[in-house]
């Protein structure tokens, strides 16, 4: 269990990194924390011929930029909890990232790495879809912004093209009053989820005005609950009828079925976790109002 050979390139600046990625195309992978990529390389399930080390790049800012919060690709997971901007504007994100990995992994792993790796049950892809994030992909040709819902295609497959790398994400700030929560179910702490459910609400202090719900572990990429807004709009925060809404929005969903968790079990978790996340999001909203 040692990696196949590769060439190593350490980029000092973004343009250098992009030039290297352009030069080597499909054969190159950027490496940041390496907490997802290197296990795959050691198992020889990933065999890039070129690794472009981007750790020295200046991509670790977290800042408010007009109507959104920007999080750089090199922000390490342990940092989210220390950023008051995240806790203040994105409670579901703040909760969700608490479920990522173990302490040593969290100190090293990065936002960009986790998103690019696109594990189907990882927290960050689900949170990006939930919060309507735009993923910023750059290449030597320029930059493009990919809505999270279009970015995650399948397990370990994204819409990144050869020569492109994620440089950060932009999370649109909630327009009015908002709340959110995230629930996850895993066999052990730090494991990838069997099911997770993230909820964001907009509200007027009394009732829900809009809602989004995203699940992971349902399919090979995060899944948005299509009817979440319709089902929850107008429901009072004090009695959101969470169970009925969770049942209704998951009706017709056929989750993954494997030896670790059957479709039926996953479906039951979807309902239960969605209900719990909704209930808590409403409680938080009432406390804040």
């Amino acid at each position: 269990m040692r990696p196949a050979p590769f060439s190593y390139h350490k980029a000092e600046r973004l343009d250098q990194a992009l030039a290297l990625l352009a030069e080597f195309g499909e054969d190159a992978r950027p490496i940041a924390g390496g907490q997802s990529l290197v296990p795959m390389m050691n198992l020889r399930l990933a065999r890039p011929s070129h690794l472009v080390d981007i750790n020295a790049l200046d991509l670790d800012t977290i800042e408010l930029r007009s109507d959104h919060l920007h999080i750089g690709a090199l922000v390490r997971h342990e940092r989210y909890a220390r950023e008051s901007l995240i806790a203040q504007h994105f409670p579901a994100f703040a909760e969700g990232v608490e479920w990522i990995g173990h302490p040593t992994i969290r100190r090293r792993g990065t936002l960009g790495g986790s998103i690019s790796h696109a594990d189907p049950t990882a927290e960050l892809p689900a949170l990006c879809v939930l919060l309507g994030a735009e993923i910023i992909a750059q290449s030597a040709e320029g930059s493009r912004r990919i809505p999270a819902a279009e970015f995650f295609i399948s397990a370990y497959v994204t819409s990144l093209e050869a020569g492109e790398m994620v440089t950060g994400i932009d999370l649109p700030l909630p327009k009015g009053k908002s709340s959110g929560a995230f629930e996850e179910f895993a066999e052990r702490s730090g494991d990838f989820a069997i099911i997770s459910a993230g909820v964001t609400l907009e509200h007027d202090g009394r009732a829900i005005t809009d809602a989004r719900v995203v699940w992971s572990g349902v399919d090979l990429a995060p899944v948005m609950a299509e009817r979440a807004g319709d089902l929850l709009r107008g429901k009072p925060l004090s009695a959101p009828e969470a169970e009925a809404a969770a049942q209704a929005m998951s009706a017709g969903i056929t989750p993954l079925d494997d030896p670790m968790a059957s479709a039926e079990f996953r479906h039951s978790l979807i309902v239960e976790l969605t209900q719990r996340a909704l209930t808590r999001a409403c409680e938080k909203a009432m406390q804040a109002s």
Binding site: G190, D191, F192, P259
Partner: peptide, 28 residues
């Protein structure tokens, strides 16, 4: 409660790393 070496019907082992073969951690 958790340790399970799973094979499929073709005799392929499915739990071939510590991500799939779950052992007790301090937290549980």
């Amino acid at each position: 409660i958790m340790e399970h070496m799973i094979y499929d019907e073709e005799g392929q082992p499915l739990t071939t790393t510590f991500a799939d073969y779950l052992m007790p951690l301090a937290t549980e």
